Simulated assay, not measured.
Amino acid sequence: MSEINDEIIYGRNSVRELLKADKPVNKVLFQSEGTGTNFQELVEVAREKRIPFQFVEKSALDRLTAHAKHQGVLAYVAPREYATVEDILGLARSKGEDPFILVLDEVEDPHNLGALIRTVDAVGAHGVIIPKRRSVGLTGTVAKTSAGAVEHVLVARETNLVQTLEELKKEGCWIAGAEAGGVEASQTDLTGPRVLVIGSEGKGIGRLVREACDEIVSLPMKGKINSLNASVAGSILLYEVLRQRTAKTSP
């Protein structure tokens, strides 16, 4: 009998029903050895629904399920439904506000994602966009780190961030990427329809995503360390956007 264990569901029947029910799934793992074509149906469903999947050794599934009878398949389940980019833009329109969106390029640490979602809620931004691959999704750890903010912040998961940024430009948004060497954030205008892009913990913003940005902004660094944790840098920049917006609307 397959079981549910916190953020994962395993067992062929359970995963099959999960995929058919259109529940939010972050990723599916299939056993790579000795499976033949046993998973072909599930693989096709995952591919059709654009759910990331990967083939791994049986030992990996054994470890993740504490040696339960996983039957060679495991799915990571998101704690809440993902939104769409249109949902985020629609929220801004419903509030009569310029879009204020955070885009995360391959941020893999769930604590960073959770902390940033919490800050997005605090500054009144309209949502977060993350990539489907090479990025942490909505997990229990993310939800816990966000201190409940994940229930209030729209998070969209997109296949192609560059294409998404180009679509946001067509909606009138100005894209600011955060990276060392850019113009100091406090010295540039961050008001109006605004998308802020934060890169991964190790590599920063990818080349193609950087090229899609309208400008690069940075924070002043006076110490001996030349970079900040992604959630710290992102939070400071989100508050800089809020500061400028508040100053612009104040009498």
Rank of each mutant, 00 (worst) to 15 (best):
L18R: 06
C173Q: 01
I9M: 11
L42C: 02
S2M: 10
I216A: 12
G36L: 11
I4K: 15
R134A: 12
R133D: 14
D62Y: 06
G124R: 06
S218C: 13
S218G: 01
A122L: 07
Q40V: 15
K23M: 13
L102W: 06
A230D: 00
E179N: 10
V43K: 11
G199L: 01
G204I: 09
E3S: 14
G223D: 11
F53Q: 06
H67K: 14
S14Q: 12
Y239R: 09
V197Q: 07
K95V: 02
V85A: 10
S218W: 05
E7F: 13
R50K: 15
E211V: 00
A46F: 09
R207N: 13
V183N: 14
P52H: 02
E158G: 07
E201A: 01
F39K: 04
L208K: 14
I51K: 03
K27W: 08
L64R: 08
P131I: 04
E81W: 10
D22C: 04
P24H: 02
A122I: 10
H152W: 08
E57T: 14
E108I: 07
V73H: 06
I216H: 12
L168G: 10
D121V: 04
V73F: 11
E81Y: 10
T119Y: 02
L208V: 11
D62C: 05
R210F: 00
G96Y: 07
H152P: 03
G137Q: 10
I175Y: 04
A156V: 02
V241P: 06
M221W: 10
L18P: 03
E166I: 06
Y239W: 13
V195C: 06
S32C: 12
I129C: 06
A180L: 13
F100Y: 13
E41Y: 10
V232E: 00
L102S: 09
K222S: 14
R47G: 13
S250M: 13
A66M: 14
L242C: 02
G148R: 05
W174L: 14
A247N: 13
F30N: 02
A115C: 03
E81H: 13
Y76D: 01
P251E: 08
A60S: 15
I236E: 02
S186M: 15
A247K: 14
T246H: 10
V25N: 03
M221I: 15
E184C: 12
P79N: 04
V153W: 03
D22Y: 12
R80A: 12
R118F: 08
A247Y: 12
L238R: 03
W174D: 08
G137C: 02
P131G: 00
L138M: 12
K132W: 03
E167H: 11
F39D: 08
L238A: 00
V232K: 01
E108M: 13
I198D: 05
G72T: 12
L196D: 04
E184T: 15
S135H: 09
L74V: 13
T119V: 09
F39V: 04
H126L: 00
R245G: 07
R210H: 11
